[in-house]
Amino acid sequence: MKSFIFWMAAGIMLLSTTYAQPKYEATETVLISGNCEMCKKAIETAGTVKHEASVDWNQETGAATLTYNPSKTNTDEILQRIALAGYDNAQYLAPDEAYASLPECCQYNREFKTNTPATHAHTPHHTSQAAATDHSTHQAATDVSQHEKEGQFQAIFNHYFNLKDALVKSDGTLAASSAARFLDALGAVKMDGLTSAEHETWMNGKESIMTVTERIAGTDDIARQRTHFASLSEQVYLLMKASGTAQPVYYQRCPMFNNSKGAHWLSLNQDIQNPYYGAQMLTCGNTVETVK
């Protein structure tokens, strides 16, 4: 009896494998948001996986026909992939980042998404920040004129900070042009306006400051610029110690730069914005001294 059942089972299995050969496919129609020909391509590419699922999206109606092998996948998986590519559908909403990075013509009206106070708050978030930034830029500009009265080096310092910011952004071209302007400012320093301590530090450091700045201006290779910036920062720090500053300046250190020998920089901001690695390690480092 037992062996009979075994042979039956074996027989059925054999049959089912033979007859499973013609691939069984399931089809389903769902709504997917989108606008144009480009959307169609993106939706279909995101949804389709070879031998598993294919998607045909109708631009007029927004209806997509999903054809898939139900032993391998399901509509959930397909629609999730499509949403992650930026396209809302009845099951899944695209992450905001994915939607925002769609080409402008594809930024459809998000009908599936329920708007919330939270998401509203999120959008003006950027604008308020931009406004704050404008404000600070404005302030920085007034500061420059103020500092010119206070000490000759203040202009130099501001150029230094511009250069530092360019390095934080890892923008070699911007760094080169900032360095060029820095160089002009260095040339314009008048010796007679200096105190004796300032004079001494300036005379000691002037030459190397100018050479290093020239080198930064002369390349847009960010790695080279950063190496020079390390020695420039040491000199500017000495100047700052000699002359004092109008507002607190933070002397900060990245312990990893230059094969972990470390390097310093100066910043108006207490928060770490590492100019030696930029975005790679933006917040790596610590403040070692506050110069006033």
Partner: peptide, 29 residues
Amino acid sequence: TVMYPEVQAQPQAAGEHAGHSGHAMGANG
């Protein structure tokens, strides 16, 4: 973090309206 592509992508997007104030960049990450 050197291996995280999303962290590196951040400041570029933020940089457009961040001007040269480094602070705004940090706030956006």
